[in-house]
């Protein structure tokens, strides 16, 4: 593999890991809100979360561009006040991947939270645990397999994200050129077929490893929780 290809693989792993870790706490919080609370605007939040799943990725990428771009209001605000710049940076690729993976994460976590018996949570309350502690000591451990599944889905989505990323942060080698972007570029040039095939195999390997790892982790948690 050429250095250029290695760079793309490393960048993809960095972008996908960052996207997953950053959206995990937010995703769990939103999933909990949707699963356990009734509030005004719940339907709106639910729709908003699922929007990236149904919109064409290019549209999502364009919406990100006109929101977080260099001249866009939110982008300017973040750059001026916090020094955070998304446009044409790898952080922008991570943001695009996080947004695209978010609905998958929330769906998986929400389902597993809904499967946790609320009677156990109420029992924890009568033992003196405040709601946040009930979540940390009862709900979260019991829905952990679902959280892992959601995180892996989000990671896999981030590894494969193409449309939103290329629309939002373009295809700059070493900065925003992730694995799918490079494969796409290689298919556009003569003699790129061999390299594209190599990267395709790498991509398949990473996805399968992630899936295998999550299966093992989830199984270990289940065994630990349910046996004597």
């Amino acid at each position: 593999m050429t250095p250029e290809e290695w760079t793309a693989v490393r960048l993809s792993l960095l972008v996908a890991t960052t996207a997953t870790l950053a959206s995990l706490p937010v995703g769990v919080a939103v999933a909990w809100l949707l699963a356990r609370r009734q509030f005004w605007g719940k339907g709106l939040l639910d729709t908003l979360v699922h929007l990236p799943l149904i919109l064409p990725p290019v549209v999502t990428g364009y919406l990100l561009l006109i929101t977080f771009g260099r001249r866009a209001p939110v982008g300017v605000f973040l750059a001026d006040n916090f020094g955070i710049v998304f446009s044409f940076r790898w952080t922008g690729a991570a943001l695009a991947c996080a947004v695209m993976g978010f609905p998958l994460l929330v769906r998986a976590v929400r389902l597993s939270i809904e499967a946790v018996d609320t009677r156990l949570e109420r029992a924890a309350g009568t033992l003196g645990a405040r709601p946040l502690w009930v979540f940390a000591t009862v709900t979260l451990p019991l829905c952990l397999p679902g959280v892992i599944a959601g995180a892996i889905l989000c990671f896999a989505k981030a590894m494969g994200e193409f449309g939103a990323t290329i629309t939002f942060v373009s295809n700059i080698p070493g900065e925003t050129q992730t694995l799918p972007s490079l494969i796409y570029t290689l298919t556009q040039v003569p003699d790129g077929d061999a390299a594209a095939l190599r990267l395709t195999l790498v991509s398949i390997a990473i996805s399968m490893l992630a899936l295998l790892g999550s299966e093992l982790l989830a199984r270990r948690i289940c065994v630990r929780q349910m046996t004597a």
């Binding site: 109420r122 029992a123 309350g125 009568t126 033992l127 003196g128």
Partner: peptide, 8 residues
Amino acid sequence: SHLRRIGY
């Protein structure tokens, strides 16, 4: 309920 100290 978590502040009542009533066992159940």
